[in-house]
Design a protein around this nucleic acid. Sequence first.
DNA 1: CAGTTCATATAGCGTTGCTATAGGTGCTAG
DNA 2: CTAGCACCTATAGCAACGCTATATGAACTG
Lengths: 242, 242
Amino acid sequence: MSIDGQLPPKARLLRAAAELLANSGGSPISTRQITQQAGVTAPTLYHHFGDKEGLFDAVVAAGFDEYVAGERDFAPSGQPLEDIRRMWDNHVQFGLKQPELYLVMFGNIRPESRPAIVADAEALMEEMLNKAAVSGQLNVPPKEAARSILAANVGMTLMLIAEKAPERNLELSAMTRDAMIFAVSTEQARDTGSVDSGKSSVVVAAIALNAALQASHSDQLSSSELKLFLEWLHRISNSSTS
Amino acid sequence: MSIDGQLPPKARLLRAAAELLANSGGSPISTRQITQQAGVTAPTLYHHFGDKEGLFDAVVAAGFDEYVAGERDFAPSGQPLEDIRRMWDNHVQFGLKQPELYLVMFGNIRPESRPAIVADAEALMEEMLNKAAVSGQLNVPPKEAARSILAANVGMTLMLIAEKAPERNLELSAMTRDAMIFAVSTEQARDTGSVDSGKSSVVVAAIALNAALQASHSDQLSSSELKLFLEWLHRISNSSTS
DNA sequence: CAGTTCATATAGCGTTGCTATAGGTGCTAG
DNA sequence: CTAGCACCTATAGCAACGCTATATGAACTG
């Protein structure tokens, strides 16, 4: 059951902690579980890592390296804002792929004490935003832009993690992402695969329809018919928002 | 030292838990602390609240009432999107005023399990966004808009709480807020030429119709009108594929 | 080979959330 | 008035938690 490879105890502790965390499903894991899985006794853990938090910090640091690796892979596209977009998506993917680790990294908020990892992630994003600022694409100082974008990015990722897997809607993430990037950028020509092009005649009819509906506060509609109608409307509104 | 008023033990437990939580500075508080401060022994707590989480849920419920009260105070301004703006700010203020309580409410994220409180807050915001949708101001279904805005709102608040008080920059919150609201709204004073025709597409109309219908409680349209509307919608959706 | 340092183990401390059991309290029925 | 009953609270203690004082072994250094 335990990890009995030739690895030194320190590495075995790290690995055991990471594995147990990944399979914990969110429930807290104890030092006894970790030391047992690593085939080691308690004092060894505290000798190497000081305390439980120290061990988890080490796990987080390793996880962050992976996180950074993912960010760097996408980095050199020449268009800084496009890179920011990819950083956002990579951030979300990282959180969804390893939710427990992500929650340890970004979910342990305490008043007036920022996890070091958040500052690192912010610096990473700020670095990228700096390139955008140099080429005059930023509307806001890079530091503040990074803060805002990362805050929204974390919030979005936390929300997605909290949702059950089949209900997760990544389009919400994309929309929020573009909204944040647009807000800090100077380029006012938006191109996020927009749907609205050449529909001015449709607009008139839609508005008229809307007005007619709101004006009709008197008649009746059977619930089954209403259901059908709602379903139809829902399908339309959803099929076009993608 | 303990709370020895004439209040029943249940209320004293609630009060003790809330007070200890508010003054804990983020460090976890024990059931023994709570029961001692309430002048009560352990089984009393478990008789009334089941377990520690049950007690905290009750504290959270009380806190949420206060939260909702703050939201409702600002509600009726006539301009739904302006109300959303105020809801955002109230959310942030609530989090900064009672960070420990806020963290219990919105910070205890676990994979695939949404705190009930988040769903409530989302419903509150969706309700307001529904008004915006009815008047054709929404670009996105209210439910998804509420999800996105609330996710960013929580992310921003968590980030502000984690920062040390003097360093908190509320302008970042305002910028993010406006970016999110702008992203889901139709009032787009940007992009290409045609400004005052409004950019509302068939999507906007469908969303508005959907919201209006849901608000109408199913007895305001005759079946003949329904047929007519369906026909109109059909014509619109066909012409939009040009 | 003696001394020092690093690394691990034995055993146990204090605290945690929680509970099996029992006793007291206030109500209503006879 | 009292018997019974449901409700509430206390005594005492369990298992699991994070952590450590102390001791023992191994490995390098002089």
